[in-house]
Amino acid sequence: MIRPILGRVGIAAAALALPLGLAAVPAQAADMATVSVLHAIPEGAGADVVDVFANGDLLIDNFTPGTLETVEVPAGTYDLAVFGDGQTPDDAEPVLIAEAVEVPGGVNATVTANLDAEGAPALNVFVNDISALAAGEARLIVRHIAAAPAVDVLAGSDVIFSDVTNPNEGVIVVPAGDYEASVNLAGTDTTVLGPAPVMLEEGTVTIAYAWGSAEQENLALATQLITDVSTGPEGVPAGGGSTTQLPLMAFGIAALGALAIAGAGARLAATRN
């Protein structure tokens, strides 16, 4: 049976401090926010089927472990409450609450219902970095929301995040492509998750969650993808000029000087910044 967490979930307000990159939001999106909720409390911990309410209204129905649901909500302040299946704020006490969660317009955030480092249920709020990626890049975010000690996250044999503790994250931008990821107990060679092949797609934010419980031996990975955050390439240079300057270009590079003279009138008219 999950104990109610009374009072505000401290991490919630702190985690919603906005990165600067989120300040620029399209006008029509400014009054809405995208919020995902991840059910990361393992089965058998008393939360196998729950309903999630926001400000007293049903937000997510029949929510089960390992499921991620994404909703669009108006910007505002939310009291989030998790109830046992079929129960409502009118007839029951919540099993988990997070009060006064600030959700600014345009933000992309994920709320996780998970175990804390000691194995007690908790709600955490993470702001997802969806700032634009240059062409060819991918962003990887790794979040520790498991009842487990500090870990290192490796790509191949390189440690990319060290000493990550529940409920914290590491963020890195890398060239898009295939990687092999693993999670070790911090400072050791003891692998607790993986190695697993991970495809980081261009222009996509891949969020990997380590969840479950080391003691219960049900540590697992969950993922969330946020696609289409690439700026696109810098341009498309797709012409050499031979069909417009053919007579001159036939003389090769030396013709460029002649071109400059012959085309002086045109170039004068064409003076540009």
Partner: peptide
Amino acid sequence: PYRTLERRDATELP
């Protein structure tokens, strides 16, 4: 005022 965009099994890796 809420609108569901997607529900998926997050344990299925991409």
